[in-house]
Amino acid sequence: MADELTNLIADLKETEALELVEKRLSAGGNPLDILAAARGGLEIVGKRFAANEYFIPDLVYSGEILRQVVKIVEPKLKGGHEMKRIGKVVFGTVAGDIHDIGKDIVVFMLDINGFEVHDLGIDIPAQAFVDKIKETGAPIVGLSGFLTLAFDAMKETIKAIEAAGLRDKVKIMIGGGQIDEEIRKYTGADAFGKDAIEAVKLAKQFLR
């Protein structure tokens, strides 16, 4: 049987979930356990999203609930509370494009699923991706883009990664409104994903 807090978050009961967090903390509950239970709720949210039971608003809302849980719990934490990370990902919206809603959702889902995500932000030049890959040694790169100009920006970013001698050290996934298999081939990426769940699936495959 899942924890009550896990279930409340999975069912997107914001008020009840936050009340329970407060109650557990004041009863001397372990903050790390509370966080683990909250993350468990997010895992269920992710599964429901993958099963088309939940949609983007639900996903975003669950992230907002978690953010508040962390805010309440954080002051009680002594030292690190970081979960164990399973792999590094460098992520960003490519040059010329300033869209971040899709990117933020993917970054959030990767984070929840245990990845250490280095989110560069929006309108990111190719060189910044190269530099970050070198700095972190991340084996996975995610390129996001909503506009059609992102097709060429992605292609150029991947070329720059290649020119830096890093292409065989990283797996590259792309995504965004108009991205499909045609564009995966065009850009030279390893894979493309239609949504955040696919991005997590791809990232996990890349680690194998």
């Binding site: 010329g96 494009d97 300033i98 869209h99 809603i101 506009l147």
Partner: peptide, 18 residues
């Protein structure tokens, strides 16, 4: 919004800042 030469490149279209 940001538009060409004003926050995005001259070769990028105008884009909303949410």
């Amino acid at each position: 919004y940001r538009w060409p030469g004003r926050g995005v490149s001259e070769r990028a279209p105008y884009q909303c800042v949410e």
